[in-house]
Design a protein around this nucleic acid. Structure first.
Lengths: 254, 254
DNA sequence: GAGGACCGTTTCCTGATAGCGAACGATTGG
DNA sequence: CCAATCGTTCGCTATCAGGAAACGGTCCTC
């Protein structure tokens, strides 16, 4: 076992390597997984047997796949979050008035995670990161909205961990440029995303804070031909900010 | 570690014990978890550190909670399922025409799992099992619809594993009575649930099969005062059956 | 403000075990 | 019909998962 300081229980790391390989492939066999992970067949088999007994993996005629139990855990995590339950009706409203996809993003481990989304039916053309999916904070409107409320040191920690990878030709990859952008976001209370994450996706977001700390961000996204110019920069921007404010007020009154 | 044949990698079982304890509590400390699981504080701490490095757990000021990463895994599992992607628009339609909550249930490890739900806004009063939640097959309309397509031996396997626990005073707890009920469900292609799972919930479901095997069930649920008599037994029943049939046809044409 | 109780964390040790290699049936396909 | 490949089983052994105890910090309490 790789005895990294960060993974004191090596076999847990192994198991989640297998889980993540299964997550990517959808369905896979023992040999296939063993080769991918670089483990012996027998070890992989032991892990799969254990995971199956725990109901996290389903054995289907000599092949394996992840079970729906993960869906249960994931939904429980989400439903326990006070922020999500408060933001849910708010962004559903926002989605209806804006006629666009709206998201709640939270930050975790230096990534942004889409915790909830409404109005998926408005976006049929372009591909959006799935709910629960992790994205880079520096390349998304919601991510920049959250980062803008972080201290300089906290931003530094995120950059050290995740870097500034380029996702499209418009992604901000220079740290000084990002710092400038974050100052502007902080001043306006608004973040825009213009093809920095996905080439044809535009986005506007506002941070949600509780007692001075950022707890998430509200965003509206759409394809580049759906929203631009005044609609994006004024109409949608105003809606996003007022929704974020409404959520903040409700968070206080809980 | 308990050296059960079914859990060849004991520490994986330990880790998921911790995950499930965290899932129930929402947030917990090391000592609390160690007492619950019956493990030493240092071991629990090692597991939590590992899980945090893997981004599945979040450390928040000396206390721990599950991360949203589980939501990502769960959604990926769901989105990979061909049945879900086909059933999704169908049960959304069904929900609108019926004006009720509709569900897609699949069977896993002898339990029923709600894989997808539409029209949650129609049900504000009574509590419904969450999406991803696991329920007993013998006590739910969807579960009985699925069981009705199982062979006698398969039903026996499920009963051996999960038993026939009583959930309300109307739950079927006698095996012979259940077998009779399943025959009736098979004959009609329809299953009803009248307070057998939750006292005030009524439900009607139809199985979805692919090449003779049950792959899931479509159901409509509502509180007892919303649906009963003719509405439940004729109108909704017909809609559920035709939706299930439509899904079966699409499954064939994939 | 001193004491104590509790917390999360770290350290060190040791018996249990995670991972390995090899062998075994079952299945497949040339 | 045999060769290849699959999932599975079986012992073995070096490793490590788990335990006990001590540590440093924080929060009450008196």
């Amino acid at each position: 076992m790789s005895n990294d300081e960060r993974y004191p229980v090596g076999s847990v790391r192994t198991t989640f390597r297998i889980v993540e390989a299964l997550e990517q492939r959808g369905t896979a066999g023992v040999t296939e997984l063993a080769e991918e992970i670089g483990l012996s067949k027998s070890s992989v088999h032991k892990h799969l047997t254990t995971l199956e007994s725990l109901d996290y993996v389903v054995r289907d005629e000599g092949t394996y796949r992840l079970g729906f139990r993960f869906l249960g855990v994931g939904n429980r995590v989400r439903n326990r979050s006070e922020l999500v339950s408060i933001a849910k009706p708010a962004i559903e409203n926002l989605s209806r008035t804006a006629g666009s996809v709206t998201n709640l993003m939270v930050a975790e481990h230096g990534y942004g995670v889409y915790a909830y989304r409404a109005g998926e039916q408005f976006e049929t053309s372009s591909y959006l990161p799935p709910v629960g999916g992790r994205v880079y904070l520096h390349a998304t409107a919601g991510g920049k909205a959250i980062l803008s409320q972080f201290s300089d040191e906290e931003v530094e920690t995120v950059l050290d961990r995740r870097g500034l990878p380029s996702l499209t030709e418009k992604t901000i990859t220079d740290e000084q440029a990002l710092r400038r952008e974050l100052r502007s976001v902080r001043d306006r209370g608004l973040a825009f995303e213009r093809g920095e994450h996905l080439p044809s996706v535009q986005c506007v977001a506002a941070p949600v804070t509780a007692s001075g700390r950022p707890v998430g961000a509200i965003s509206v996204s759409g394809s580049i031909d759906q929203m631009s110019g005044k609609k994006l920069e004024e109409d949608l921007a105003g809606l996003v900010v007022s929704t974020a404010n409404a959520i903040e007020v409700t968070l206080l009154r809980r």
